[in-house]
Amino acid sequence: MELWLDLKERKRGMNSREISLKLNGCEVTATVEPRIHLADFLRHTLGATGTHLGCEHGVCGACTVNVDGDAVRSCLMFAIQVDGKNVTTIEGIANSDKTLHPIQEAFRKHHGLQCGFCTPGMVITLEAFLKNHPNPTEFEIRKAISGNICRCTGYQPIVAAAMEAATNLKNQGQ
């Protein structure tokens, strides 16, 4: 009985597929099992460990990545679903000349992180949010990061960083 179950289990996963995507501007091709979610794929298969995994059921927001312009939870998407898509993770946020992105710069200035576990998700979420809302109020920022849990900072420095980043991004016309 157990052997039979084992064989059945194995047979189920026999439809691995080759996928291609753009990760932070670079073409990547890999073979994935359908059950592997995007966060595990990024971290384990591609070694892009900047994306953090907190809860794995869509509550904490740490694993937030950008797929085709939208901030999404990478633990709630299967890697097989990003075939042909553009994925941006925290590794792809800084400018090409290695200087920090204005959001990262503001986080550093305002001590918007302590342990840093939630930071990749915070930055990716805010990047997508500030693109669509260049003049946010503090309330709107708090709403925007309501899906990202931080256990260290008490959120005040993160909100301060986001406010300053919004101003700087607007001045840069980015």
Partner: peptide, 11 residues
């Protein structure tokens, strides 16, 4: 916290 194996279709 990983899904079980499944066959995947994207019609």
């Amino acid at each position: 916290m990983k899904s079980c194996n499944f066959s995947y279709y994207d019609p």
